[in-house]
Write a protein that binds this DNA or RNA. Structure first.
Lengths: 152, 152
DNA sequence: ATTCTCTTCATACTAAAGTATGATTTCCAG
DNA sequence: CTGGAAATCATACTTTAGTATGAAGAGAAT
């Protein structure tokens, strides 16, 4: 609002200066000889320019901010482990580790290497997992685990 | 640019109308009696308003577009098959059938029974799939296929 | 007509997965 | 301190998965 007042002051001054200028021109160069239409046209154009200038001064600060909401697909960033299900099914820590690696598509041997245990150990954990998840194969285990929110 | 031309036309018309109006006023109501300053002031104010109007018409198009990225969790509720990938990888119809059943956690034998083909046929399709998907195991194949949008 | 892909299937393997059982150690709770 | 769960591993075995190779019919494309 402070700037508004400033704009009005500037506008008033500009008007005064132009009026003076026109008066000076009027008496010094006999512009009165020109037809009224041309005279008015000049003033009109001048003040249209002034108007545009004023408008830009005012409106520049009132730029319409169009907030365009662009939907961004987020790949499952919100996974939260369903610990209740884990407990309910009685899945142990190590079994869960194996399940995780399984869901990454690793073979039993690769899981064994990653977890620093023997192949047989992984097989045992896997077998126990299948019983607890009530499935027969690892592909089903991964499917079921995802359904139950045990893995992302 | 089309809109610019339209604005100019409107402006020209407005100027003409106002000039005419002033001429009519001039001869009918003896406005000439008013001092030149007041007369000019009125014209100035009028055309300042016109200028502002023109300016708003022009400037309104300078809207600041703030692109706000809204994260949208897509729970893959509506799956749309990525046929381009299927073609790119050269996966045949039958191979895709096997892939689908595979992702359901079925064994090769179960898939064979479901598709009314022999176990060996399923194995062949599976093997070819692994080559095309560049994976080694069915678990990885399912994973990869999901990433590529081949299966839900 | 013949080349090519898809589909089917077989045989013969190798590799991996999965089951069953038992043993050992560690660690926690009753 | 002791019974039980958890974790580890082994041996032995069965079942599935996966590879390699070849073959043959069907249909589309050239």
């Amino acid at each position: 609002m402070l700037k508004m007042r400033k704009t009005i002051v500037i506008y008033g001054l500009a008007l005064a200066v132009l009026t003076l200028l026109l008066n000076v021109l009027e008496y010094k160069f006999f512009i009165r000889d020109l037809s009224m239409e041309v005279y008015m046209g000049l003033i009109a154009i001048m003040f249209t320019i002034v108007g545009i200038w004023v408008a830009t001064k005012i409106i520049r600060r009132k730029t319409e901010t169009v907030i365009k909401e662009v939907p961004v697909l987020v790949q499952q960033s919100h996974f939260e482990l369903n610990e209740k299900e884990l407990q309910r099914l009685g899945i142990s820590n190590r079994e869960y580790d194996v399940l995780e690696q399984m869901s990454q598509g690793l073979s039993n041997q690769e899981i064994a290497d990653k977890l620093y245990v023997s192949l047989n150990t992984v097989k045992t954990h896997a077998s126990n997992l299948y019983i607890k998840l009530d499935v027969k194969r690892r592909t089903q285990a991964v499917q079921r685990a995802k359904e139950l929110g045990l893995i992302p």
